[in-house]
Nucleic acid binder design. Structure first.
Lengths: 130, 130, 130, 130
DNA sequence: GTGGTCTAGACCACG
DNA sequence: GTGGTCTAGACCACC
């Protein structure tokens, strides 16, 4: 499981972590009933403060995708995989929708926007395969 | 000239205003050497605090796209139109790139991402024409 | 509006604050559309750290009983009074139910429990009027 | 002897176990000079960690209601039955007092509180007999 | 070892 | 002034 957080994003770090865990569960990297990385462990990997991770985990618990197991850690719930697939779609769709809305209201033409999109999609697929 | 700010976005309001003005200049809605709306006027239209607008204007001044004319207001500079066309592309591209990067790292397949994109593009074009 | 928190309770302080605000809204002490005390102000009154109050306020926001007004404070929502009357009942009922469940499983007889209850009710009503 | 622990209560599990043993001794289910269940046995029944049970037993030993008998286990002391009857009353009374204090400070009327109490008492008696 | 709570104090965005 | 986020590090309950 690989975590990607960007400390300089306008999106709070804890929210990025929430998203990453949701993605991990949706993709199957984090299986139902398994334990997610401990607060301290993930904090060390991401170079953020444990409190920041803890806050993300509380949010995830609130969403019902993980449950705290006293003294053991945070466990992925049985319903999480289905739930996270929905949440993942919502997150990605929302982000894309906002980007496109901004593109439209920037008065760029539809062709220009499509060109930009195609270009960025190819760019990322290059990265993905590379 | 139409301004769109979304108070619940993670993007700060003043930054949204900066973007809107840049878009307005790039599209020609705000012509070179013309005056942009006064701080108070725009604050009233957008239902935000005048300080927030003032801060956005400072940022625009820093970018060199507007210049304050004592006693008259803020004027679009001569170089602004070209500059803003570049800035506009950068802004839109950056936002799209980030949205797609997130889509990719969510482990959605390329196909699913393309489907989402197409769906959202149509949705916005519907709105644009409607 | 009077706040009662007990630092040595097993119930976390932030949760006690959540309850107190809900009670205040349910009773009408905190009216819809009004601002609740600021984080710093309440922290000073309760002699707790501002972060603790902030956490309580986030929880309340999540419940939909207050909403953050950027730069102004936290506002009681329009739906809050009705919502809080329900929440209040749930909180009080839950606490009473747990106390009684414990009383029953302590193997005290029904009479003894009733006697204890009556005694404590009178005691509190004495306090309330005194 | 039946043990009831609620893992999601704000009351620590070890403290719940302490209470349950005190109740058992007060009611006569656990007789003076008899052995209480072993740490491992009780841990298995309650599905909690043996350390948690061990901690509860330490607490009970500190209260003087059980004493460890090398090689045999933990024995209910001779003074325990009387002591536990007092402790039981204190525990139940404290819990009820706190629940009622909260009810009062929630600004529910005396009438409403009495109604809630009556309703919950009947509910539990239904369970007790059922 | 685990997560949960709390204090402390920094910086930021916004009004 | 407001709330929001983050770092830092303490102590606790539990496994």
């Amino acid at each position: 499981m690989l975590f990607n957080v960007h400390p300089d994003s306008t999106v709070p770090i804890y929210e990025q972590i929430v998203g990453q865990v949701i993605f991990g569960i949706a993709s199957g990297d984090l299986a139902a009933e398994s334990l997610i990385p401990s607060v301290r462990e993930l904090a060390q990997v991401l170079l953020v403060h444990p409190n920041t991770v803890a806050r993300a985990y509380q949010e995830l618990e609130r969403h019902g995708v993980v449950a705290s197991r006293r003294g053991r850690g945070m466990e992925v719930t049985a319903e999480a995989p289905d739930l996270c697939k929905e949440l993942r779609r919502d997150i990605v769709q929302k982000r894309i929708r906002e980007a496109l809305r901004e593109a439209v209201c920037s008065a760029l033409s539809e062709e220009e926007i499509r060109k930009l999109l195609e270009q960025e999609v190819s760019r990322l697929n290059g990265k993905r395969r590379g």
